[in-house]
Design a protein around this nucleic acid. Sequence first.
DNA 1: TGAAAACTGTAATGTACGTTACATTATCCT
DNA 2: AGGATAATGTAACGTACATTACAGTTTTCA
Lengths: 190, 190
Amino acid sequence: MIDAAAAIFFEHGFERASLSAIVRRSGGSLSTLYQLFGSKEGLFEAMVTQRCAQIMEPLTTPHQPGQDPRETLVRIARGLMGVLMDPEAQGLWRMVMGEGIKFPRLPEIYFRCGPDPLQTAMVRYLSDLHDRGIVHCPDVPSVVQAFCGMMQSDLFYRTVTGMRPIPEAAETERHVQKVVDLVMGMLTRR
Amino acid sequence: MIDAAAAIFFEHGFERASLSAIVRRSGGSLSTLYQLFGSKEGLFEAMVTQRCAQIMEPLTTPHQPGQDPRETLVRIARGLMGVLMDPEAQGLWRMVMGEGIKFPRLPEIYFRCGPDPLQTAMVRYLSDLHDRGIVHCPDVPSVVQAFCGMMQSDLFYRTVTGMRPIPEAAETERHVQKVVDLVMGMLTRR
DNA sequence: TGAAAACTGTAATGTACGTTACATTATCCT
DNA sequence: AGGATAATGTAACGTACATTACAGTTTTCA
């Protein structure tokens, strides 16, 4: 039933999504829906909570400090790119941005599941590299911020708004390489 | 009347905004609204079109090639930051991201008024500096993308979703300086 | 097996709101 | 001034939909 809710909510938005449509798709009954979630908002929150954890899960994998830094960054960037270009994750993003003011718990859940773990893991990883003298980076948080910001470029915004289709793998890979190049420049320069 | 529509739409979103509320606020009459705009969607589009041009206007100012590059970048970054942290612009952003799928004309209008002019102007400016040997930058578009991406950091996302209040001027200025530092690093390095 | 709990289908209720109709009033132009 | 044009106020219409009520059915499990 949460799957059906996700599909309908992500496609139409909160207000336009009708509970009858969700029930029709999920196969359950309206009564059970109210039994389980209490209200439309309850179902919405439960769905977002579940999907946040599920969609963002690839972003929480820790990084082994022994590997080549560039390869590690590329791996992280590819994982992030995969999430950014996932149609369901894009629906979730639109929900968080569009309904976040009406539902303050949405941004909380989103940041706690996605950006926060990714950024703390990256800060830990890069700080470790810096401490061991492998890279020189006096301001790790800023570099991590820069990395995340650069990943979410026009490519992402134009896709999430439907202005262009999901890009080919080659195009996302080019973007990954470009961002990692720029970040590596920030790490090795003096 | 467009002012009232903007206030109500930006605060509540398209579906939750009621035409009666807009009329009550604007002082006009429901009949005139339909006379002028034809429907709720018509008013919405007219409002977004008007506000896009108005809000994004500071981003379209051209740059004099004679000035110090860093100062120019700081000036651009401050202007962009001013727009990003403007409550009305944030409402517009939420509309474009949240309702863009239902209203494909919204992203079109938005990109044409905001990101597109800013980026082409910056590309022109930096290419000129490169051609004249003032900076070294073989891939200007990527640097411009990086600049725009870094400006829209967590600071912006957490503010636009209501997770934190509009930041103090000192905080935005720190962010401006940090981004410009990183971009200058991309321009001068080898 | 048999009762308790959970699930289902359908109908009813209430409400909010977009949209239209229409009669009335104000504004403009020559 | 006076007719044409636009603006206003109000009421009505229709619809979509969240929510509840209730009676019937299935599942669970001891």
